[in-house]
Computed example of a mutant assay.
Amino acid sequence: MTVVEESALPREPFEALARQALRVEEVPWLEFVNGKPVSKARWDGTRGRIVEWLTRLCSQADPGNWLFAAQGLYVGSYRRGNARPDGALAPLDTFVGQGEWADPAGVLMVVEVTSYDEDTDRRDRVEKPRAYAETGIPVYLLIDRDTCEVKVHSQPDGVRYEQVVTVPYGKTVELPDPVGIELDTEPLKSWVR
C-alpha cells in the first residue's frame, strides 16, 4: 500500500462528497407503522448519549444481551409494519444473518427516545406502543424528553400493553422480566434541553 501525500489529493472532490454526505444525514429514517409511512427524525447528540447510557447499563446487567441501536424490525399485526426503534435489547446473535429489517423474535425490549418534532406524540406515545404490543415485544421503554418522564410498558396482550408505569426523571423504575433491570433515571436530568 502506498501512502499519498496530503498535498497530492485534490480537495474539491472531497468537499463535494462531504456536502453530499451531510445532505444524506438530514434525510429522516422511514418507518411503516399501523399501515402508514412515517418519518423519524435522525438522532441528535443527546439522543445518542441516552442510547449509549442504556446500552452500557443493559450489557452490564447481562453481557449476553446488547441494545442494538436503530435495528429495523418487522412490527404490528401480522408483522406488516416496519419500525426502527432507537434501541432493541436482544441476545447478541439475534440479528445475525438478517438484513435491515429483522424478525423481532428474541427482542426483550425496545427503546424510543422522543424527538423534538411534531410527530412525536402520535408516533412514540400512541402508534409505537400499539405496534410493539401487537408484535409481542415484552417491554417498551419510552424516554420522553418533552415531559421529562420515563414510561415502562409491559405485559403485551396482542393489542396493547396492560401495564404502564410512569416516573419522572430522577426516580428509579423497574424494567420487568425478561429485562430485569432497576433503572435509576437520575442521569436523564443532565440531558434535558
Score class of each variant (00 low, 15 high):
residue 66 W to T: 06
residue 67 L to V: 06
residue 67 L to A: 06
residue 68 F to V: 04
residue 68 F to T: 03
residue 68 F to N: 03
residue 69 A to C: 11
residue 69 A to K: 12
residue 70 A to R: 14
residue 70 A to E: 15
residue 70 A to M: 15
residue 70 A to W: 08
residue 71 Q to I: 06
residue 74 Y to N: 11
residue 74 Y to Q: 14
residue 74 Y to W: 15
residue 75 V to L: 00
residue 75 V to N: 00
residue 76 G to H: 02
residue 76 G to W: 01
residue 76 G to L: 01
residue 78 Y to L: 14
residue 78 Y to Q: 15
residue 79 R to C: 04
residue 79 R to M: 10
residue 80 R to S: 09
residue 80 R to G: 07
residue 80 R to F: 08
residue 80 R to V: 07
residue 81 G to R: 00
residue 81 G to S: 04
residue 81 G to L: 03
residue 81 G to A: 04
residue 82 N to K: 13
residue 82 N to T: 13
residue 82 N to Y: 13
residue 83 A to F: 04
residue 83 A to R: 01
residue 84 R to N: 09
residue 84 R to Q: 13
residue 85 P to I: 01
residue 85 P to K: 01
residue 86 D to T: 08
residue 87 G to A: 04
residue 88 A to E: 03
residue 89 L to V: 02
residue 89 L to K: 00
residue 89 L to S: 03
residue 89 L to N: 02
residue 91 P to E: 01
residue 91 P to N: 04
residue 91 P to G: 05
residue 91 P to S: 05
residue 91 P to C: 04
residue 92 L to R: 07
residue 92 L to S: 07
residue 93 D to F: 09
residue 93 D to Y: 12
residue 94 T to D: 04
residue 94 T to E: 04
residue 94 T to I: 09
residue 95 F to P: 00
residue 96 V to H: 13
residue 96 V to D: 15
residue 97 G to E: 07
residue 98 Q to T: 10
residue 98 Q to G: 09
residue 98 Q to R: 12
residue 99 G to N: 11
residue 100 E to S: 15
residue 100 E to M: 14
residue 100 E to R: 15
residue 101 W to R: 12
residue 102 A to Y: 06
residue 103 D to P: 10
residue 103 D to F: 13
residue 104 P to G: 07
residue 104 P to C: 08
residue 105 A to Q: 15
residue 106 G to I: 08
residue 106 G to R: 06
residue 107 V to F: 02
residue 108 L to Q: 11
residue 109 M to N: 05
residue 109 M to A: 07
residue 109 M to G: 06
residue 110 V to K: 03
residue 111 V to T: 03
residue 112 E to W: 06
residue 114 T to F: 08
residue 114 T to A: 09
residue 114 T to L: 10
residue 114 T to Q: 06
residue 116 Y to S: 14
residue 116 Y to Q: 14
residue 118 E to T: 11
residue 118 E to M: 08
residue 121 D to I: 13
residue 121 D to N: 14
residue 122 R to S: 11
residue 123 R to M: 10
residue 123 R to C: 07
residue 124 D to R: 01
residue 124 D to I: 00
residue 124 D to P: 01
residue 124 D to W: 00
residue 125 R to F: 02
residue 125 R to N: 03
residue 125 R to Y: 02
residue 125 R to G: 03
residue 126 V to G: 07
residue 126 V to L: 13
residue 127 E to P: 05
residue 128 K to I: 01
residue 129 P to C: 11
